[in-house]
């Protein structure tokens, strides 16, 4: 038994060195060499500093910006240090109440827009950090953003198109619009 214990311990140490030290360090080295921007968080750089990550959404509640997915992270939305979904069940009255309230907020920001709201704009994402919305959710907001910024809807449409990605190779995933990058581009357009 003592011999077996010794063998087990040595084997654990050796395999830990291989899979827990050599392997992650090798991957880190290769990642930093081959894909440094991605390996370090896909940061959006402006004027030499990071203004966010193109993969991590931010909270937008100002009607002059495109709004992203509702986020259930705590204590504030889009808390990237503590990702999380709402985990509300489909029949939970709290879910229905939250959706109602989000519809009301969208309508209050854009009186007169009575179109049904695309579902991704009123349901919390799984991560609470979803950086994207559906093209339908972007279309729903174009008129509002254009009006409040004094821009032509066509100019805003062009920006939305520029920040829309289709399915990968036409097949994988879903079409989507990057909210943070779209809003940054809007700010640039407005200040020019």
């Amino acid at each position: 038994m003592a011999k077996l214990l010794r063998q087990s311990l040595l084997m654990l140490l050796l395999l830990t060195a291989a899979t827990g030290v050599a392997y992650p360090l090798l991957v880190t080295g290769l990642a930093q060499g081959l894909f440094p921007a991605q390996a370090n968080g896909s940061l959006v750089l402006e004027h030499g500093g990071a203004v966010g990550s193109r993969l991590i959404g931010q909270s937008f509640t100002d009607p002059r910006y495109f709004w992203g997915r509702p986020s259930a992270t705590s204590p504030m939305p889009y808390n990237a240090a503590a990702s999380g979904g709402s985990n509300l069940g489909p029949n939970n009255p709290a879910l229905v109440a939250a959706v109602r309230q989000r519809i009301a907020a969208l309508r209050a920001a854009d009186p007169g827009n009575t179109a049904p709201v695309p579902v991704d704009l009123v349901t919390a994402s799984g991560s609470g950090l979803d950086p994207q919305i559906s093209p339908a959710a972007a279309q729903y907001q174009v008129a509002r953003v254009a009006r409040l910024r004094g821009l032509s809807p066509a100019a805003v449409q062009a920006l939305v198109r520029a920040h829309t990605a289709g399915r990968t190779w036409g097949v994988l995933g879903e079409p989507r619009v990057d909210v943070l990058e779209l809003n940054l581009a809007l700010d640039h357009l407005s200040t020019r």
Partner: peptide
């Protein structure tokens, strides 16, 4: 323009 369906707890890209 959208996946639709039950999107609570799901990500747009998937």
């Amino acid at each position: 323009l959208q996946a639709g369906g039950n999107m609570e707890g799901k990500e747009v890209r998937f």
